[in-house]
Simulated scan of single mutants.
Amino acid sequence: MPRRPALSHDRIIDAAVQVADRGGLAQVSMRNVGKELGVEAMSLYHHLAGKDALLDALANWIFTRIELPEPRQPWRQAMADRAASARATLSEHPWALGLIESRRSPGPALLRHHDTVLGCLRGNGFPMTLAAHAFSAIDAYVYGFVLTELNLPFDVDSAAEEIVGEIGEQLSPDLYPHLAELVAEQVMHRDYAYGDEFEYGLALILDSLESRLASDDPSD
Rank of each mutant, 00 (worst) to 15 (best):
I138G: 03
D191M: 01
T148G: 01
D191H: 12
L48N: 05
D14R: 13
G165P: 03
F154V: 02
N124R: 05
Q73P: 11
Q18C: 10
S91Y: 11
P177M: 02
L213Q: 10
W61T: 04
V117C: 10
R104I: 10
H178I: 00
I205K: 06
D155Q: 06
L130E: 05
P218Q: 08
M128V: 12
D56V: 04
L213C: 06
L118P: 01
M30V: 03
Y176G: 00
G201E: 02
R31C: 01
G107E: 08
Q73V: 06
S219W: 04
A131P: 06
A80M: 13
E162Q: 09
S136A: 14
R82T: 15
P108R: 10
G50S: 04
A88Q: 15
P177D: 05
D81I: 05
D155R: 07
S136W: 03
L44I: 05
V156A: 08
V117H: 04
G98T: 11
A53R: 08
D139M: 08
Q27C: 12
S8F: 01
D157V: 03
S102E: 15
P153V: 02
H178V: 04
R22E: 14
Y143E: 09
I12E: 07
E166L: 13
I66N: 09
P2N: 14
D196M: 06
E161F: 00
S158P: 00
H178F: 04
R4N: 11
P106R: 05
L37C: 05
T129C: 00
A83D: 14
H189Q: 10
G34E: 02
L48H: 12
L54D: 07
P69V: 08
R122H: 12
R212K: 13
P153Y: 02
P106F: 02
R122P: 00
N60Y: 06
H189G: 01
E40P: 00
I62S: 10
E36H: 10
D191Y: 03
M79H: 13
H47D: 08
A159H: 04
